[in-house]
Simulated assay, not measured.
Amino acid sequence: MGTAFDRDALLEAFDRIGRAAAQAGTKLQIAVYGGSALMLASNFRFATEDVDVSKLEHPLPDWLASVVHEIAQENHWREDWLNDGVSFHLSSLADRAADHLEFGTFPRDATSAGLVVSVPSAEYLLALKLKAFRVLDPVRGETERLDILNLMHVVGISTVDDAIGLLGRYFPMSAASAEKRRFLLKNISREGVADAPKYPR
Rank of each mutant, 00 (worst) to 15 (best):
E79F: 15
G156E: 07
A110I: 05
D80R: 13
M39W: 07
H76C: 08
V53M: 05
A20P: 02
T3P: 03
S91T: 08
D161F: 03
T26G: 12
G104C: 02
E179N: 12
R7D: 09
N83R: 08
R181V: 14
D161K: 11
W77N: 00
F106A: 02
V116G: 06
V51N: 03
A163T: 03
L184C: 01
A47M: 12
N187L: 05
L56G: 11
R182A: 02
D161Q: 09
I71D: 00
H69Y: 10
P59L: 08
A22S: 14
K198I: 06
F103Q: 00
F46Q: 08
M152P: 09
I148W: 01
R145P: 03
L146Q: 08
N43I: 11
G2A: 15
A97K: 15
P138T: 02
P107Y: 01
E179G: 07
A41I: 06
Y170M: 09
V116Y: 08
I148C: 03
V32P: 07
A132M: 05
K27N: 10
I164E: 01
H69K: 15
K131Q: 13
V117T: 08
W77A: 01
P107Q: 04
N83K: 14
K198Q: 13
H153V: 13
T3C: 08
D137Q: 01
P59E: 12
N83L: 10
D137G: 00
P61W: 07
R45W: 04
R16I: 06
K180M: 11
G35K: 02
E102Q: 13
E79V: 08
R169T: 14
E74P: 10
K55L: 12
D50Q: 13
F103R: 01
A37Y: 09
R182Q: 13
L125T: 14
L167T: 08
R7M: 05
F14V: 05
M1S: 14
A22W: 01
F14T: 02
